[in-house]
Simulated assay, not measured.
Amino acid sequence: MTGTSSTVEVVAPDGAPEIHTGSDLVGELLPLVQLADGDIVVMTSKVVSKAEGRVVRSSRDEAVTAETVRVVARRGPTTIVRNRLGLTMAAAGVDASNVAAGSVVLLPRDPDGSARGIRASIRVRTGRNVGVVITDTAGRAWREGQTDIAIGAAGLLVSEPYAGRTDAHGNELAVTQPAVADEVAGMAELAQGKLSGRPFAVVRGRADLVLPPHQHGPGAASLIRAEEGDLFGYGAREAVVRALRGDPGDRAPFGAPAAADELRAVITDVLGLIPTPTGRDGGMLTVTFPRGLARALSALAFAHGWEVLATDSPSDVRLRPARP
C-alpha cells in the first residue's frame, strides 16, 4: 500500500537587525533566507509599524483611546475594543514593549496595503512569487492564552471555503471555512518565538494558497466579521447596559432584527406579557404593559433589533423592526 504525506516547514531566521523608521524590511529579510516560488513570507506587525514610523510618543492609555472605535468589554485593567481597523483586540493592538519609555507602537495604518508593498518588492528584487502575511497577537473568546493572527495579507487565499464539499462518509459540509492565513500566522509564531528577536519567518509547503503574481487577493481584512454579523458584539455586562440605555448608535453590534415570534417569546418569558401581532403582515407587535415595565420592555426590544412606538393608549406600545 502506498501512502501519501504532506509536509509544511517554517524557517524563522536569526540575524534580523533592530528596525527603525524607514528601514527596508525586504532588504533586511533577503540576506537571511533563500526564497522560492510559493513561499509565504511572514512578518510581525511590530517591525512593519516601526519601519512605517508608527512609533509615537504617548502614554498607552492615551493611544488606546485614540485607536478605539468602541469598547466591547472591560474587566478591571483589561479593555477589549474594536479598533480603527475593525479588529477586536485587547488595548486596540497598542504595544508598549520593546520601545523607549514614553513611546508606544501602533498597528500599521493599512496592513493589507503594507503586505502588498512587501510582496511587490520581493517580486521585483528576486523574481519570486510569494504570499505575504503580517501578524499580530490576539486573545480568543472562550480560550485562555493568545495566538498570532493575520492582520494583513497579500497574494494569498486567506480562507478555504469547504461549504458544499463532502467528507469521506458522504456528509456535505455546510459552514467549514478554515482561516488559513491565521493558521499560517500561528505556525510562524511557533518558530519566531516572542523574545528571540526573529520578526521574519517563511512558511513552505502550501504553495497552493499562493495566488498568481498579478493577484493580491482579498487581504486579511476580509476575515473581519461585520459588526451586525458578530454574535458577541459586546461583553455580557456591556450588552445589558447598552440595551437599557437604548442609544440608536449602539444598534449595529446587536445584529439584524429578530423574527417577531422570537421577540414575542422573549417578552413573554421575561416579562410575562403577551404581545399581539399587528400590522398588514403581522410584522409588528402591540403590547399592553404596566408602566413599571416600560424600560425593561424597551431594552428587550432594543437588544433584538426592534424599536418602540407610542400609541394613543398610555398602556399600549407598538413594536416594529428598527430601520437602518
Score class of each variant (00 low, 15 high):
Arg140Ala: 15
Asp230Val: 04
Ile40Ala: 00
Ala236Arg: 09
Arg204Glu: 08
Lys50Phe: 00
Asp312Lys: 06
Gly193Thr: 01
Phe232Ala: 10
Val317Gln: 02
Gly229Met: 04
Ile267Ala: 02
Gly229Arg: 05
Ser45Gln: 12
Pro212Cys: 01
Ala185Val: 08
Gly113Glu: 01
Arg82Ser: 08
Gly235Ala: 02
Val124Lys: 09
Leu106Ile: 14
Pro108Val: 11
Arg60Ser: 14
Ser23Leu: 10
Ser196Ala: 15
Ser6Cys: 11
Gly217Ala: 06
Thr44Ala: 05
Ala201Glu: 02
Val287Phe: 08
Ala301Pro: 02
Arg128Asn: 12
Leu300Gln: 13
Gly3Trp: 13
Leu29Ser: 03
Gln215Gly: 05
Ala100Trp: 10
Val26Ser: 05
Val158Phe: 02
His304Cys: 02
Asp316Gln: 15
Gly249Ser: 07
Ser59Arg: 03
Pro324Trp: 15
Ser5Lys: 12
Arg119Asp: 06
Ser103Glu: 15
Leu300Lys: 02
Ile122Pro: 00
Arg237Ile: 10
Arg143Tyr: 14
Arg264Glu: 13
Arg84Thr: 14
Trp306Met: 12
Asp312Arg: 12
Gly145Glu: 11
Met284Cys: 11
Trp306His: 09
Pro277Glu: 06
Leu211Thr: 09
Glu172Ala: 13
Glu238Tyr: 04
Gly255Thr: 11
Val69Trp: 10
Ala91His: 13
Ala191Trp: 04
Gly145Leu: 09
Gly27Lys: 04
Arg82Leu: 03
Ala243Arg: 03
Gly246Glu: 07
Arg70Thr: 05
Tyr162Asp: 00
Ala73Arg: 14
Phe254Ala: 09
Thr68Glu: 05
